[in-house]
Design a protein around this nucleic acid. Structure first.
Lengths: 353, 353
DNA sequence: AGCTTTCACGTAAACGTTTACATTTTTATG
DNA sequence: CATAAAAATGTAAACGTTTACGTGAAAGCT
C-alpha cells in the first residue's frame, strides 16, 4: 500500500541504510545519490513509518496527557500550552480526559503506557495516595504533574502555590470586611488542589482570628447548586457574606444559583473563584478570582518533561505566580454593625421552596 | 527493561505464540497454562507493546484529531465527545490544535500520518480547496470532518446545517423588528462554517427584502474589537441595530467592546452568537445564540469514523440539529419609526476617540 | 608507489509483536 | 486399545525501521 523505505531504496538503486541515513540526517551521503533518493521519496510519497522506527529506537516521540476534564477552560488552556511546546519540540500528544473518574485515570495511563509514550503529563485526583504515580516511579516512567499541589515527596510538578493563594483569598475577603465566609469546593478526594486552597484559606482565617468558614464539598459536575446553597442561607443570621469557590466554573454556577435564590452578588454575598478563565472578565458582575497562567503552565510542563527525557537536570517543582484579580463579584461586606442590622437585608432574601 | 512477551513465555515455560493467544483471546489455551502465563504476566508486570503489535497488525487503534483551537469551548466539547466515544471503542487519541494556522494543519496531519493513525477527525479551514483532504482521499486515509460545512463533494462530515442556521438568525432578527443588521465574522478563509452562516444569513435577508448586512471579517483571535466596531457606528444613522457574530467567543468580545463604546446590549444593539457554549447562559445579558450539540457531534464523528474503519457503510454526512436559543442579548429593535426618531438614542452613544 | 585515512555505501541483525503452519498432546470413537 | 479427530502448543517469518560493522573506492601523505 504505502511505500516503505525498501521501495525507496530499490527505486533509487541504493540500500535501505543509505535512505535511512539521508532521511534522518545521520551519516553522509553523496549529493548525487541524495538527489536520486529524494526523487524516489517524492514520487512514491514515502513517509517514514514512525511505528517501525519507534520499535527500533525505543522511543516514540509521543507524550501522554491525562487531565480531568476538557470542558474546564483551565485544562483546555493547559493542553493548548502543552500542545504548543510539544509541537515545537517535535513531540506529538496522546490525549485522554477522565471526567474526574479515578478509575478512568488508571485505564488511561495504562493505555498510554501500552503505546510506550516517552513520558506523561498529568493532573491526578490525589498525588499523595496515587497507586498510579507509585507505579510510574517504580517503573521509572518519566512524568510531570501539572496543577497538582506539590508535596514533600517532590514529585515533578508545575503548579501555582494553591495554599498561598487560599490565604490570599482569605486576606482579600477579610479586607473587604467579611466576617462570616464560606467555601464551596469540589470534592477534596477528587482534587488535591481544592484541598490545598481550602487549607490555606482556613489557616489564614484562623490566624487572623476569624471564625472558621462553612464548607460545602460538591461534585465538580454539580447540577443543582441551589440545593447546596439554600441550607446555608436558611439558618438564622449565620449565613456567610462571602463565598470562596474552588474553581471558576463552580463560582459561575454559584453566582447563578444565588441569583435564582434572589441574592445579589456582590451586594448580598460576594463570590470569588479560582483559575482566572477568560470568560470571567466578561461576566456581570466580572468574576473575582485567582488567576493561574494556564497556558504557560502547560508549556512549562512540556518543557520540564522533555528536558528530563533529554537527561537534563531540572528542578523537580516549578511554582508559577498566581495573581488575585478582584472582579466585581467580590465587594465590601454588607454594612456590618449589630447582628440585627444584618437582618435588614432579609427582605431581599427568600427561603427557597 | 520492561518485560516482553518473550520474558513472559520463558517464565511460564511456553512459547510466545501461546502467550499472544492468551493475551488477545485469539485461539484456545488450557486453563492450567493460562494460569501460569497470567502469573508470569503479573509478576513481570508485562504490558503488551502496542508499537510492536501495530507494526505487525498494520493498525494502531489510534485516531488523529486536528482542530483549530483548544481555547474555544465548542472544540473542547467536541474533543470531549470524541474522547468519550473513542475510549469506549478501544481507541486512543493523538491530538493537535493548529491555532487557526493553515500551514500548521498540514504539518499536524502529516505528523499524525507518520504515526499511522487508523483515521482522522478534523476541522479544517476550507474543505473545498484543501490539498490536505485531497491527499487523504488519494491515499485512502479514512477521515471524517466535524463542524465543517458539508458540500456537494459529500466528504464524510458531522455538522449542523450552518446555512439554515444563518437563515434562522436572519428570521429571528427580522422578527424582532431589526431593519439594519450586521455581521461580525471570523475570516471566511479560515472558517468555511462562518462563510456558510453568512451565506444563509444574507440569503434570507435578501429573500425578505431587507437591506444587505454590513459585514466585517475579523481574526478569530482579534484583540481590539472596539476598532472594528467603532467605524460601523460613527457613520450617520445607518448603523446596524443588531449584530450576528459567527461564534460565541466573538459575540462575547463584541458585547464587551460595545459596552466600552457605551452602547447597551440589547437596548441599543442586539447581539446573537453561534455555538451555544455553556458560559453564554451565565453572561449578563445571557447570550442569544444558535446552539450546536458539540459533545454529541464529537461522539458521532468518532462513531462514524470507526464504523468506516470496521468496513460498515455509513451515510457520508450527518447533520445534527441546532437550536436557536434566544437569550437576553437579542431584543426588540429600538422603537422604529422615522429615521429622525432613531437619533433620539444618539445621546447614549458616544463617538469613540 | 605504497600506505593510511576518510568517505560512501551495503549487509544483516535487531526491536516486540502476530499468525500461518507444523507438531504434539489430549480426547473421543469404535 | 488403536486410531482418528480435536485441542493445545510450538516454530519461524514477517511488519518497517535503525545501526553496528564491514567493504571498496577515493584521497592524502611520505
Amino acid at each position: 500500500m504505502t511505500a516503505t523505505i525498501r521501495d525507496v531504496a530499490r527505486r533509487a538503486g541504493v540500500s535501505v541504510a543509505t535512505v535511512s541515513r539521508l532521511v534522518n540526517g545521520t551519516g553522509r551521503v553523496r549529493e548525487k545519490t541524495a538527489e536520486r533518493i529524494r526523487d524516489a521519496i517524492s514520487v512514491l510519497g514515502f513517509r517514514p513509518n514512525v511505528v517501525g522506527r519507534s520499535l527500533k529506537t525505543a522511543h516514540t516521540m509521543a507524550l501522554g496527557v491525562v487531565i480531568p476534564s476538557m470542558s474546564n477552560p483551565i485544562f483546555a488552556d493547559t493542553v493548548a500550552g502543552i500542545n504548543e511546546a510539544a509541537r515545537s519540540l517535535g513531540y506529538t500528544l496522546m490525549f485522554t480526559s477522565t471526567d474526574y473518574d479515578a478509575a478512568e485515570e488508571e485505564r488511561a495511563v495504562s493505555a498510554l503506557l501500552g503505546y510506550r509514550v516517552d513520558g506523561l503529563i498529568l493532573t491526578v485526583a490525589d498525588p499523595e495516595h496515587s497507586t498510579i504515580l507509585d507505579a510510574l516511579d517504580r517503573d521509572r516512567v518519566p512524568y510531570v504533574l501539572v496543577h497538582n499541589q506539590p508535596s514533600p515527596r517532590r514529585r515533578p510538578t508545575v503548579a501555582v502555590d494553591n495554599v498561598a493563594a487560599g490565604r490570599a483569598v482569605a486576606d482579600a475577603l477579610l479586607a473587604l470586611g467579611h466576617a462570616r465566609v464560606g467555601m464551596i469546593s469540589g470534592r477534596f478526594s477528587a482534587s488535591d488542589r481544592a484541598e490545598a486552597r481550602h487549607r490555606g484559606f482556613v489557616q489564614r482565617l484562623a490566624q487572623l482570628g476569624a471564625p472558621p468558614p462553612a464548607v460545602r464539598e460538591v461534585s465538580f459536575l454539580e447540577q443543582d447548586m441551589e440545593s447546596v446553597l439554600a441550607p446555608l442561607y436558611t439558618a438564622g443570621g449565620e449565613a456567610p457574606t462571602a463565598l470562596f469557590c474552588s474553581n471558576d466554573l463552580l463560582a459561575i454556577a454559584v453566582i447563578g444559583a444565588l441569583s435564582r435564590l434572589r441574592f445579589q452578588v456582590p451586594h448580598d454575598v460576594s463570590v470569588i473563584g479560582f483559575d482566572g478563565i477568560a470568560v470571567g472578565t466578561h461576566l456581570h458582575p466580572t468574576l473575582a478570582t485567582i488567576v493561574q497562567p494556564a497556558r504557560e503552565m502547560g508549556r512549562a510542563a512540556a518543557v520540564k518533561l522533555t528536558s528530563r527525557l533529554a537527561g537534563r537536570e531540572e528542578p523537580a517543582v516549578t511554582i508559577l505566580p498566581h495573581v488575585l484579580r478582584l472582579g466585581e463579584s467580590a465587594g465590601q461586606a454588607a454594612r456590618r454593625a449589630t447582628d440585627a442590622d444584618n437582618n435588614l437585608h432579609g427582605a431581599q432574601r427568600r427561603t427557597p421552596s
